[in-house]
Structure formats: C-alpha cells, structure tokens
Amino acid sequence: MKKGFALMETIIVITFISVSLLLLYSTFIGMINSSKQNRLFDNVSNIYKTYYLKEYLNLQGLTNYTTNSIKELTCNDFNFASCSTLTKKLNVSHMYLVKYGKFNYDEKLYSNNFNDYLHLLSTSDDYQYRLIIEFLEGEEYSYASLALGGSHE
C-alpha cells in the first residue's frame, strides 16, 4: 500500500503553488507602479500647462526643430525674452522634443522617472514628435506631454 507523497507529486504541487503566487505578485506590483504614475505622469494641471507652452512655443519656432530621438530644448533655442519667466512661472524644469514612436537612446543620460514615463507613452498614432515637459514642484518631478506634427493637427 502506498503511503505518503512521492517526490514528483511534491515537486508538481510546489511548482503549481509557486507559479500561482508569482502571477499574483506580478499583478499587484503593476498596481503599485500605476499609483505612482497616476500622481506624477500626465497630471491634468500639467497637461494644460504643456498645452499653453506648446501653443506659445509654436509661435516661437518650435516646428523648426527636428530630432531622431530626444532633443532637449532650452530658452536659448527660442528668440523671446520672456522664455525663462514663462518656464519659471509654470514650474518647468526641462523641455524635450522627442521623436514619436519607438527609437533607441541612452537611458543613462536621463532620470529613471523620465525613462519610465517615456516607456509608457503610446506609439500607435500618426504623429512626428512629442513635446515632453518635466515639471519640478517642491522636490517632486512630474511629466506631461503632447503630440506634435500629425494628421490630427
């Protein structure tokens, strides 16, 4: 008469339980990360600030710039005296013109939050670039972006 568990049965049960628990773990980790994204990425207030910046920078020659990956934009790239006042009042830390869609770039040159944000952005529409604004309020960096140069504009 067979008594107890064979080794194989034990391994199979343990494997099954481990895989189930790992799947649960990966689901919950996604939920934790998305709570950070909700706060810092595409905050509605920042989206409107990005919109106003985009509209004003378009008047100052934003459409003249191109890039194959990421180009950091500064006030030196635009010929209007109030650029630094405008960016300061809107709590802008950095501005980036980013190629729409997938591309290779050196992630070490940018912060982890910026890289996380870039990886989350959709690439399915027909646009040429994105204007990504990094805001700094207190000690927290937040991000918002708008697409540029597509059939929708």
Binding site: K2, K3, G4, F5, L7, T10, I14, I17, S18, L21, L22, L24, Y25, F28
Partner: peptide
C-alpha cells in the same frame, strides 16, 4: 514511501520566499 525532511524544508523555504514577497 513518504517524504524526506530535506524535501519538506526546500518546499517550505520556496513557498516562504514567495509569501514574503506577497
């Protein structure tokens, strides 16, 4: 017949690691 103590210990430690993560 049965299960050795080593197998029990290994199984418990594997499950413990995952439960701690959870």
């Amino acid at each position: 017949k049965g299960i050795t103590i080593i197998e029990v210990l290994v199984s418990i430690s594997l499950v413990s690691i995952i439960v701690l993560l959870l």
